[in-house]
């Protein structure tokens, strides 16, 4: 009895301790890398880290939204490639037919988001209405999106991205803050409000915690799930547009290993694959951690292959810590 009581008393402070693990690890990591190479903490590199993080954070947020409902999106990476290629092709085509730059950008955005939404609709309908597991459904769309991206582009980068587009989504800045960071901050804030303040957002947590209870409570689970996958793919499309603006061309290999990186980011940050736990904060923290780790390892010239081993170990340790935290709480 006494041990139970004391553990109960401690649970508040230990909960805070567990929550602080990742931020503390982040600071330790930064200081550790800085001890090896001073330039890690230079303002230029910190801004660089923030900018790199903003892409991964966006993808981790997209992934978090579906993970909350016990799903995940393996097709996120290929969808990014597909959107990148589609956006660039549409803009190149519109430029060739002599349209105004602003019309060209609009055509690109329309195509990019259209492809993203189509991919999300496919995933959502197959998962929610046909009852196929998220793994198989998004593995299917993974293959389809890769096929579409490489076929449309013939496997080569698509040139012809107008300056205005790159300026809007990459080169531009407000008070010296690059566009990518501003966009991600704005989206993160909006998503956070949506997840914490709206009925739709809260219902994602209910579906993830207990799908049967959600259905019994009268939530339109199927419709919400479709919307969730569309939201995920739309966020991924935005990230793809930002990355296309950065590279200045539509890249059929842009997504590469992004699906798994985004899942790793979300999971390291403390999002539970069992559903119902996580949010914008965990996604951003996880993305920051993964980015600082790889940035630091690059600057301290750690072999790229060893980096893969470290990232793999970090993912497992991150989930293990989360697991221990949950057991403590019980």
């Amino acid at each position: 009895m006494t041990t139970e009581q004391s553990s109960h008393k401690n649970s508040f402070s230990s909960e805070w301790l567990w929550r602080a693990v990742l931020p503390i690890a982040l600071v330790v990591l930064l200081l550790g890398f800085a001890a090896v190479d001073r330039s890690v903490l230079s303002p230029a590199n910190l801004l660089n880290i923030a900018q790199q993080t903003s892409y991964l954070a966006l993808f981790a947020m997209a992934q978090t939204v579906v993970i909350l409902t016990r799903g995940f999106d393996l097709a996120l990476g290929p969808a990014v490639s597909m959107v990148s290629v589609g956006t660039a092709l549409a803009m190149a085509g519109a430029t060739a037919t002599g349209h105004d730059p602003s019309i060209v950008v609009l055509a690109g955005l329309g195509t990019g988001f259209g492809l993203g939404i189509a991919c999300g609709l496919f995933n959502g309908v197959v998962i929610a209405l046909l009852g196929v597991s998220p793994f198989v459904a998004t593995l299917g769309s993974y293959n389809i999106a890769i096929g579409v991206a490489t076929t449309l582009s013939a496997g080569r980068p698509v040139q012809g991205v107008p300056k205005l587009f790159s300026q809007l989504f990459y080169g531009g800045s407000i008070f010296g803050i690059p566009a990518a960071i501003i966009i991600t901050l704005a989206i993160g804030l909006a998503l956070h409000l949506m997840l914490s303040r709206t009925v739709f957002g809260r219902s994602l947590y209910i579906i993830g915690t207990n799908p049967r209870a959600a259905a019994v409570a009268g939530l339109p689970v199927k419709r919400i799930l479709v919307a969730t996958y569309v939201l995920c793919s739309t966020l991924a499309a935005l990230g793809a547009i930002m990355m296309t603006a950065r590279t200045g061309s539509g890249e059929p290999n842009l997504g590469g290993s992004l699906s798994l990186q985004a899942i790793a980011g979300a999971v390291v940050g403390g999002t539970s694959l069992a559903g119902g736990r996580g949010g914008v904060g965990t996604a951003v923290l996880g993305a920051l951690f993964v980015t600082i780790l790889s940035n630091g390892m690059n600057l301290t010239r750690i072999d790229g292959y060893i980096q893969m081993v470290v990232l793999g170990a970090i993912v497992i340790i991150g989930v293990l810590l989360d697991r221990l935290r949950l057991e403590r709480r019980r």
């Binding site: 995940f72 798994l260 899942i263 790793a264 999971v267 694959l273 069992a274 072999d303 292959y305 060893i306 980096q307 893969m308 081993v309 990232l311 793999g312 170990a313 970090i314 993912v315 497992i316 989930v319 293990l320 697991r323």
Partner: peptide
């Protein structure tokens, strides 16, 4: 350790591929 199989094998996938590349460059 009761870590989900998806995450564990995702981690070992990255680590194993890294070791393979490391051995042979």
């Amino acid at each position: 350790l009761k870590v989900s199989g998806f995450v564990v094998t995702l981690g070992t996938m990255s680590a194993t591929a890294g070791v393979g590349l490391m051995i042979t460059s």
